[in-house]
């Protein structure tokens, strides 16, 4: 097997949709039970990042902001590969890249320390816990791959990819 696309979507990341996609992930092959659990958690987390933070968004009833982006989930021989892409400000792309570098450079102990520190110090409310990327790496035990493609002087498309091993 080279790679097989399990799921591909482009549009607004409504929770109703994320939830249905998530259920499909849970129903993937039985033999990779632990990988499916991890994949589901990472899938929800990264999709909600798009929904909450994409600079391209829809407003629902003039109050609720739903981010627009893309996702692709692929199955490889020994792993699943999940990618999300969304629009960000160029200034935020730089911060995100730095955050990915920090997470990738941290060993499991350091990641756990970072997670505890960030969650405790997050202002909460609409900011959440700010540990989604850390959690994704802690769960998958693989590094984040990121790519930034500039659209114009203000905005970029920022892609995040993570691999979840089947065993």
């Amino acid at each position: 097997m080279t790679s097989k696309t399990i799921l591909s979507y482009k549009g607004p990341f409504y929770i109703e949709l994320i939830s249905v996609f998530g259920m499909n992930i849970r129903n993937l092959k039985d033999e990779y039970n632990n990988a499916r659990k991890k994949l589901f958690k990472i899938f929800i987390e990264l999709c909600q990042n798009v929904s909450n933070y994409s600079e391209d968004f829809h407003m629902v009833n003039h109050v609720q902001r739903i981010g627009v982006g893309e996702l692709i989930l692929q199955e490889l021989e020994d792993s699943y590969k999940f990618t999300t892409t969304n629009q960000v400000k160029n200034t935020d792309a730089k911060i995100l890249a730095e955050r990915c570098e920090l997470v990738n450079a941290s060993d499991p102990l350091k990641l756990r320390e970072l997670k505890r520190e960030q969650r405790l110090n997050s202002p909460g409310e609409k900011f959440g816990a700010r540990i989604g990327l850390i959690q994704a790496v802690m769960l998958s035990k693989n590094k984040l791959e990121y790519k930034n493609e500039e659209i114009d002087k203000d905005y970029s498309y920022f892609s995040l990819t993570i691999k979840i091993d089947k065993n």
Binding site: I44, L120, G124, A129
Partner: peptide, 13 residues
């Protein structure tokens, strides 16, 4: 069975 990271912040509260 599952809680996302935003929920973990609220549980911590």
């Amino acid at each position: 069975i599952y809680l996302n990271t935003s929920s973990t912040k609220c549980v911590l509260d």
